[in-house]
C-alpha cells in the first residue's frame, strides 16, 4: 500500500493535503538511495542541467539550502526511472524539451544557456499558464489525473517540492519537523510549532 499511496500522492490533487507518515518514510528511503546511486539513469546531462536549474528557481538557496543543495535533480531522476510509468516519464521529458523550444523561440538559445533573467521569464510563463488552466477544470475531475496534473510544470513543481521537503535539510532546517516528535498536542498555539 505504501508504494501505491505514495505514487497516488505524487499525482494527487487536493484530496491529500498532507503527506502521511508512511509516504514520508517512503520518500525518505528514496533520499537514502541517492547516496548509493549517484549516477543518473534517465536524465541525460543536458536534461539534468535543466532540471537542476528549474528546481533551484522554484526553491532557491536563501538562509536555508535550496533544491540544488539537497540534490532534488537526482531525486527526480530516481522517481522518473523507478516510479513513473512510461507515459508519465515521456510526458515529463517532452515537457523539458518544450522548455528549450520556448527559450530558443524567444532568446535564440537553450534554456540553460540563458541568463537568470531569461530563465525567470520562461519559468514565469510556465507558472502563469498553469494558473490559467487550473480553474475551474480540475474541480470536476473524472479521470485519474485532473488536466493540471498532466502539465509538465505541475509535475516539475510537485516533484521539486516533494524532493525538497522530504530531504533532511528540507524537513529539519526549513520546516522544523521531527521524525520523532518531541511532544503531542491536539490544539497548540502556532508559536509552539517552530520550537
Amino acid at each position: 500500500m505504501q508504494r501505491r499511496e505514495a505514487l497516488r500522492l505524487l499525482a494527487a490533487a487536493a484530496a491529500l493535503p498532507v503527506l502521511s507518515r508512511d509516504a514520508f518514510s517512503l520518500f525518505r528511503e528514496v533520499h537514502e538511495q541517492l547516496a548509493a546511486a549517484p549516477a543518473l539513469k534517465t536524465l541525460n546531462p543536458h536534461q539534468n542541467a535543466m532540471v537542476t536549474a528549474i528546481s533551484e528557481l522554484i526553491i532557491p538557496q536563501t538562509d536555508t539550502p535550496g533544491a540544488k543543495a539537497v540534490r532534488v535533480n537526482e531525486f527526480i531522476d530516481l522517481i522518473l526511472t523507478e516510479w513513473y510509468d512510461d507515459d508519465e516519464r515521456q510526458r515529463f521529458l517532452a515537457g523539458l524539451a518544450d522548455v528549450d523550444v520556448r527559450s530558443r523561440d524567444v532568446f535564440g538559445k537553450d534554456f540553460v544557456d540563458g541568463s537568470e533573467k531569461q530563465q525567470l521569464q520562461i519559468v514565469s510563463s510556465l507558472d502563469e499558464e498553469l494558473a490559467g488552466i487550473r480553474q475551474p477544470l480540475d474541480l470536476h475531475r473524472e479521470g485519474r489525473f485532473a488536466p493540471t496534473e498532466k502539465q509538465f510544470f505541475y509535475m516539475m513543481k510537485r516533484l521539486t517540492l516533494v524532493g525538497y521537503y522530504t530531504s533532511q535539510a528540507g524537513f529539519e532546517q526549513e520546516r522544523h519537523e521531527h521524525i520523532i516528535p518531541p511532544r503531542h498536542a491536539g490544539c497548540a498555539s502556532i508559536e509552539e510549532e517552530a520550537t
Binding site: A13, P17, T62, E128
Partner: peptide, 28 residues
C-alpha cells in the same frame, strides 16, 4: 503544509518563505 505549493502560483524565495509556514485549515 508545503504540498499546497503545487497548486499555488509562484516560485522563488517568497514562495519558499510562504511554504515554510502552515497554510489554512482544510477538511476532506
Amino acid at each position: 503544509n508545503w504540498q499546497r505549493g503545487a497548486w499555488m502560483t509562484g516560485f522563488g524565495a517568497d514562495f519558499k518563505h510562504t511554504l515554510s509556514r502552515p497554510g489554512p485549515w482544510m477538511f476532506t
